[in-house]
């Protein structure tokens, strides 16, 4: 497999109030791959994501590279862990999407084009039935799919997700990750996902960065998720059982155009 870095991180450090949250991070994220960032609580996973998003001051270098290896500013999209809102709020999914789609204030009504574009965005993730539903009434899994639909509307090149399946049930979590895999295949999207769920990581990620304030190890899922590494990161004797699957993992330099059995386009 040819390694084509989409992001190169060199000597990255982040300090908050004099405390070093991330120290000398060296890592890279490959094009068209799902890269999972794992590590114990307080390891700096979300901080690393924030640094990639440019939300925290940091020292060191973060280089975004296009397919030719040239530095460029990619279109970034972000899917947060959850929304921080009052569940009683009457803001609907349509309102939420419209907030970014139309310049006209929501209290002046929604334009036809906004409604159609929102419907279309949700249809791609098979959640168009949620269009008029208040977001406070959605389940954790539904919120994540809506957030993903919103993130995809800007046609991003790099998608960053912060623990997208925490608080989502097992089936919902795998369904969400299946969607991510489809996206990765069909759009050649580079995906970075912070996750605590090692079974999901082992099944859906192509590469893993193990973090504990600095990079403990990085590589392919098989290389990284070993008992030794898991012990080094979490301090527990842990291992992952392999199981047979009808859908063997697809390498991340997979080309969507060559795929013959791809399902609905996302």
């Amino acid at each position: 497999m040819i390694s084509r870095p989409a992001v190169q991180i060199e000597n990255l450090s982040v300090k908050f109030n004099g405390m070093e949250i991330l120290k000398n991070i060296h890592a890279h994220i490959e094009h068209g791959c799902i890269t999972a960032i794992i590590g114990p609580n307080g390891a700096g996973k979300t901080t690393l994501l924030s640094a990639l998003l440019g939300l925290v001051p940091c020292s060191g270098i973060i280089r975004f590279l296009n397919e030719n290896g040239d530095v460029y500013p990619p279109r970034l999209a972000y899917v947060p862990q959850n929304l921080e809102f009052d569940r009683q709020s009457p803001v609907t999914v349509l309102d939420f999407i419209a907030l970014r789609h139309q310049k006209k204030p929501l209290w002046m009504g929604l334009s036809r084009s906004t409604i159609e574009a929102s419907q279309e965005a949700l249809e791609k993730l098979k959640v168009s039935h949620l269009l008029r539903k208040p977001i406070g009434k959605l389940s954790g899994g539904e919120i994540q799919r809506v957030l993903l639909a919103i993130a995809l509307r800007d046609n991003p090149e790099l998608l960053l997700l912060d623990e997208p399946i925490s608080g989502v049930d097992v089936a919902g979590g795998h369904l969400f990750c299946d969607i991510l895999e489809k996206l990765r295949r069909q759009r050649q999207l580079t995906i970075v996902m912070v996750s605590h769920d090692l079974s999901v990581v082992s099944q859906h990620a192509d590469r893993v960065i193990c973090l504990n304030r600095s990079v403990v190890c990085e590589g392919t899922t098989v290389e990284v998720l070993t008992s030794e590494n898991l012990f080094a990161i979490y301090g527990l004797h842990a291992g992952l059982y392999e199981y047979e699957t009808k859908n063997p993992p697809i390498p991340c330099d997979y080309n969507a155009k060559d795929k013959t059995n791809s399902s609905t386009a996302l």
């Binding site: 947060p80 929304l83 921080e84 809102f85 709020s89 803001v91 309102d95 939420f96 419209a98 907030l99 970014r100 139309q102 310049k103 204030p105 929501l106 209290w107 977001i135």
Partner: peptide, 10 residues
């Protein structure tokens, strides 16, 4: 208005 409502959500 739209941006403030967006801030309130995340």
């Amino acid at each position: 208005y739209n941006n403030l409502l967006f801030i309130s959500l995340h």
